[in-house]
Write a protein that binds this DNA or RNA. Structure first.
Length: 411
DNA sequence: TCTGGGGTCCTAGGACCC
DNA sequence: TCTGGGGTCCTAGGACCC
């Protein structure tokens, strides 16, 4: 039985964090504003000036920028220092995630009043399955896309009324095209795409506009002479499979032709929870041992608190380290019974840490708990015991630190 | 003065069991 | 002595997304 045709919307809030900031600081409208650097001191209007991006010194990246700042070449993910070189006079505001989460809940509730089949895709975007709503128009002989367009308008108006914020919506037969569509007429766009529009409107776009083709795949395709989605659509599936493997190659081919049958998933359980922090300055595993140990303990307490607050426990405890050369390593350890206990997580994390040779300064430390189950569920049958992994021997050229106790232990 | 923090999913090898 | 598979779990790394 062929699946009935669907109507999917992708809704994306316009420059979300920056727009939230403008909501409470309307005098900044029209100016280049950058949100980022959560450690930046609270932004205040002082001595006739807002904090200047050009005065910032430190690590941190741009989280969002207003369209005025984007016009200067600033985009999210860019280092704040690089952004400061492009627009030193831009206003820099620290991120206020509590406020963003509050407005995120508000816009999603406003959508749910009109269309409840929502897939959460993070703080500022969602997919909505409008198939049922669209079908309700058909028996009346309405043009289904006309009805859908009107419904999308209603959704946008409801979001605006509830939050004061604007969003862009893509309407299409699947998630892939809806997502591309919501980005085509930003900000404030409402874009309808059908399968018939693919050659005209999708094929001229760069391959990177396909959600799932990132920097690496994009560069590899480019090196193979494939720049646009149309180029990709013209590639033989076998040739793509040869270069990218069966799964990814076939997926690329289908995507380039606008095909995607992923459902809108309205509920999902978390897989892991983590906390990590990049230090203000790189820390030395030996000289800064105490500070590292204290930070490590704090991260474990934060993950534990997150788990407890949300009612989850986990069996796989992992750590993540990033060295000053940006090399990243992870280690994890699966324990018998799931936990949300900070001291237990700390101890397991300490064992993981012993399997890393610490021969460079560190810039980041993280703690993760995975293989989650509900805290109120029957405790799962303990897994058969495995021998504890033997810490891998330090390489011959490892420095002395390897043989010393690493971080202060509570034992 | 490069490069955040919180996630998901995939791959691949080895252990271990049947 | 050598030769098999399949399935699941665990671990490490990497790509990607918001």
């Amino acid at each position: 039985m062929p699946p009935a045709s669907r109507l999917i919307a992708h809704l994306d809030m316009d420059a979300f964090y920056a727009s939230v900031e403008l909501l409470r600081r309307p005098e900044l409208r029209g100016r280049a504003v950058v949100v980022g650097g959560s450690r930046a001191r609270a932004a205040r209007f002082e001595d006739g000036h807002w904090p200047r991006l050009g005065d910032y010194a430190g690590r941190g990246v741009v989280t969002t920028a207003t369209y005025e700042a984007r016009a200067r070449g600033i985009h999210s993910g860019m280092g704040l220092m690089k952004a400061a070189a492009l627009a030193p006079d831009a206003v820099l505001l620290p991120a206020d995630f509590d406020e963003y989460r509050r407005l995120s809940r508000a816009f999603k509730e406003a959508v749910a009043e009109l269309a409840p089949a929502i897939e959460d895709r993070g703080i500022d975007e969602i997919y909505i399955d409008l198939s049922a709503e669209a079908r309700a128009h058909e028996p009346l002989g309405h043009d289904p896309l006309g009805g859908a367009r009107a419904l999308a308008q209603d959704i946008r108006n409801n979001v605006r009324a509830a939050t004061g914020l604007s969003c862009s919506i893509g309407l299409a037969p699947n998630k892939l095209l809806a997502k591309i569509g919501s980005d085509l007429e930003k900000p404030g766009g409402l874009t309808v795409l059908t399968a018939a529009d693919v050659p005209q409107r999708i094929w001229p776009l760069p391959v990177r506009r396909i959600n799932g083709i990132g920097p690496k795949a994009g560069a590899r395709l480019d090196a193979l002479g494939v720049q646009t989605i149309g180029d990709l659509a013209a590639c033989a599936p076998d040739w793509l499979v040869e270069h990218f493997g069966r799964t990814q190659g076939l997926w690329m081919h289908r995507s380039a032709h606008g095909l995607d049958d992923r459902p809108v998933v309205t509920h999902s359980d978390p897989v892991s929870m983590s906390r990590e922090t990049t230090f203000e300055r790189d820390l030395h595993p030996r000289h800064d041992r105490e500070q590292l140990g204290a930070l490590f303990t704090r991260l474990c307490e934060q993950v534990a608190a997150d788990l407890q607050r949300k009612g989850w426990v986990g069996r796989t405890i992992g750590i993540k380290l990033r060295f000053d050369d940006f090399r990243t390593v992870t280690r994890d350890l699966t324990i018998e019974l799931p936990t949300a206990d900070a001291a237990l997580i700390r101890r397991a994390g300490g064992l993981c840490l012993k399997r890393v040779s610490l021969n460079r300064r560190l810039r980041l430390l993280g703690v993760r708990v995975g293989t989650l189950s509900r805290a109120d569920a029957q405790p799962p049958r303990p897994r058969p015991k495995r021998p504890l992994p033997v810490p891998s021997p330090a390489p011959a050229d490892a420095p002395l630190t390897q043989t010393l106790p690493l971080f202060p232990d509570e034992s």
